[in-house]
Amino acid sequence: MEIPVYMLDAFTNLPFKGNPAAVCPLLHELNDDLYHKIAAEMNLSETAFITLINAADTFTSGKRFRLRWFTPTTEVDLCGHATLASAAVLFQHQNNVNPTLVFETRSGALAVTKKKEGYVMDFPLNPPTKEDLTDFKHIVKVTVGNHPVQDIYLSRETKKLLIRLSDSCERSVLTSLKVDHAALLNSDCSGRVHGVIVTMKGSPDCKPGFDFYSRYFAPWVGIPEDPVCGSAHTVLGSYWSKILGKKKMLAYQCSSRGGELDLEVRDDGRINIAGEVTSVLQGVIRL
């Protein structure tokens, strides 16, 4: 068996920046054990598998596809950068003729529209709720140490904990965080948290005018740090939209690779997440 595989960097227009994802377009579903083995072999934060829904379709003509995402250790319910990368594979490499594609996923139908520069994803919005710092003091301590914290919020839908650093912190505080991933994994065994977002207010008056910054850690699902996480921004977008009083925002994830996301919180309870994608590798998995 030969399985085509592409590696793309999402939320960037430069190779080796943004968030890398592997994407495998498949004519037929594989068994789950094989999905897990391929994702572990790719060893990226996400490997995406696209399959046809309608037997009469091709990857060039089809409008709707099935999409699943796997980390090196588990299948996940929602992934932004690998969805962006999957759409790019169909548009750039399979020459799909449609302006918008729809992926059937564990988080429902997700549409991706091709724009002049990059792509726009139609994603669910996941508003977090305010929490008591003492309830998550061990996670906070392991993640940000003694740096001052302004807010703690939890998205129960995605199990992402949002830690907002105080506005008194410089951006360097966020970029210089060194998180012990084993200690973070052991800091909460309740199942309430699958990932930790650390965020801070941006500098919209300084070009390019980022409204907020973030980093994301998810050792609970096999991802020590996700370089640029689209699903985290379904939480961040909701939070910062209310704080800043803005619907449209420009975000930057401050991992060592870094990536930009254009966000628009919509009145229908969803969020548009836009970004660019760069292809870096094309090959074949032989089984």
Results as ranks from 00 to 15, higher is better:
residue 83 T to K: 01
residue 232 A to P: 04
residue 202 G to V: 09
residue 229 C to W: 03
residue 127 P to L: 04
residue 184 L to A: 09
residue 102 V to D: 11
residue 246 K to E: 08
residue 64 R to A: 13
residue 89 V to G: 07
residue 228 V to T: 01
residue 136 F to G: 01
residue 232 A to M: 10
residue 273 I to D: 08
residue 181 H to E: 13
residue 13 N to Q: 12
residue 160 K to W: 05
residue 19 N to A: 12
residue 10 A to W: 10
residue 222 G to R: 09
residue 56 A to I: 05
residue 271 I to Q: 11
residue 205 D to C: 10
residue 241 S to G: 09
residue 175 T to W: 04
residue 55 A to Q: 07
residue 247 K to C: 13
residue 182 A to V: 15
residue 216 Y to E: 04
residue 276 E to W: 02
residue 284 V to Q: 14
residue 223 I to T: 03
residue 44 L to Q: 12
residue 55 A to P: 00
residue 123 F to N: 09
residue 38 I to E: 04
residue 167 D to W: 04
residue 208 P to C: 12
residue 72 P to W: 13
residue 213 Y to N: 11
residue 152 I to P: 00
residue 53 I to H: 04
residue 112 V to L: 09
residue 266 R to E: 08
residue 143 T to N: 08
residue 24 C to F: 07
residue 170 E to R: 11
residue 278 T to L: 10
residue 41 E to H: 06
residue 49 F to N: 10
residue 16 F to T: 09
residue 51 T to F: 04
residue 143 T to F: 07
residue 181 H to I: 11
residue 203 S to A: 15
residue 227 P to I: 01
residue 53 I to A: 10
residue 114 K to P: 08
residue 244 L to E: 02
residue 202 G to I: 11
residue 276 E to I: 05
residue 132 D to W: 00
residue 79 C to A: 13
residue 193 V to N: 04
residue 19 N to C: 07
residue 109 A to T: 09
residue 30 L to N: 05
residue 229 C to L: 01
residue 55 A to M: 04
residue 250 L to C: 10
residue 272 N to Y: 14
residue 88 A to V: 08
residue 182 A to S: 14
residue 25 P to R: 06
residue 45 S to L: 12
residue 79 C to W: 05
residue 259 G to Y: 05
residue 242 K to Y: 15
residue 140 V to C: 08
residue 181 H to N: 14
residue 119 Y to N: 02
residue 174 L to S: 02
residue 204 P to M: 10
